[in-house]
Amino acid sequence: MPGAIRRDYGARAAPQTLPERMDGETDYETFRATLSSLASVNRLTSGYAPIRAFLDQVLERGLPERPLRLLDLGSGYGDGLRAAARYLSERGVRAELTGVDLNPHAAMAAREAQDTEHEGVTISYVTADVFDYAQRAPQPDLVTCALFTHHLEDEEVVRLLSWMDRTASRGWLVNDLYRSRVAAAGFRVLSTLLGKHPYVRHDGPVSFARSFRRADWDRYLSEAKVEGARIFIGAPFRLCVEKHA
């Protein structure tokens, strides 16, 4: 982990050359405890602000007569979907939210953590490879992903952007990290002081090393032939990309 902080932050670290512990096989309890710990960090650092702002803009543009369909990629613990469900329910929006994650532990952990119902909004979880599921999924109105793209190699990010742009009928949002040595070191200190799970303390700096700057997203969008997307800081050390149809 210290090596992740000391490395050159001018270029993104490829995931295959700088693995996270959560990328490997873990038992269920370790997986659940790690993502629960990470969710608490997300709450502390306003990590859900981008999805709320994105949904605000979607609501301003009007809604379909049927329930709004949102697909969340790499949904993990489901905390982002629960934040979206709460936000939509409070505004009286009917919606069907679906989370897809490759890890077989994710759906179970997310369902266990879902301790409240959100009126008018349903959440379901699917265990699948994102790209395989994309071929058979019902067309979503919205596609979102948070802290997911830094797990992908560059060519996979381009492929994902291209698919989202073709598929999401009303828009999409990528919410990920801004690559910064200061953020990586600060995360390490904060997560240690707060007694977060050892995997979180290790993987946080690695995630920052594998994350992005504006030039990366400019290149990916160009290669994916996506026009009209916006790149912006959505929360502290969060670099987001969104497009509204």
Rank of each mutant, 00 (worst) to 15 (best):
L81T: 15
R69D: 15
A84T: 01
P64T: 07
G80T: 08
D72Y: 06
L71Y: 04
E65G: 02
D72E: 15
L73C: 12
Y87P: 10
R82N: 09
G76P: 14
R82W: 15
Q57T: 05
R86E: 13
R82Q: 12
P64H: 02
L70S: 02
D79K: 03
R66S: 01
P64Y: 01
A85E: 10
L59A: 06
L63T: 02
E60A: 10
D79S: 13
L63I: 04
D72F: 07
E60V: 10
Y87Q: 09
D79E: 08
A85D: 14
L81M: 11
A85M: 12
A83Y: 11
R61N: 13
L81V: 15
A83H: 09
L70D: 03
E60M: 12
A84V: 00
E60W: 07
L59R: 05
D79F: 00
L63N: 10
E60S: 07
V58I: 09
E65I: 07
R61L: 10
Q57P: 00
Y87E: 13
G62P: 08
G80H: 04
R69E: 15
G78W: 08
L81Q: 13
P64E: 07
L73N: 08
R61K: 09
R86F: 07
G78Q: 12
S75T: 06
R66G: 00
L70M: 14
R82S: 05
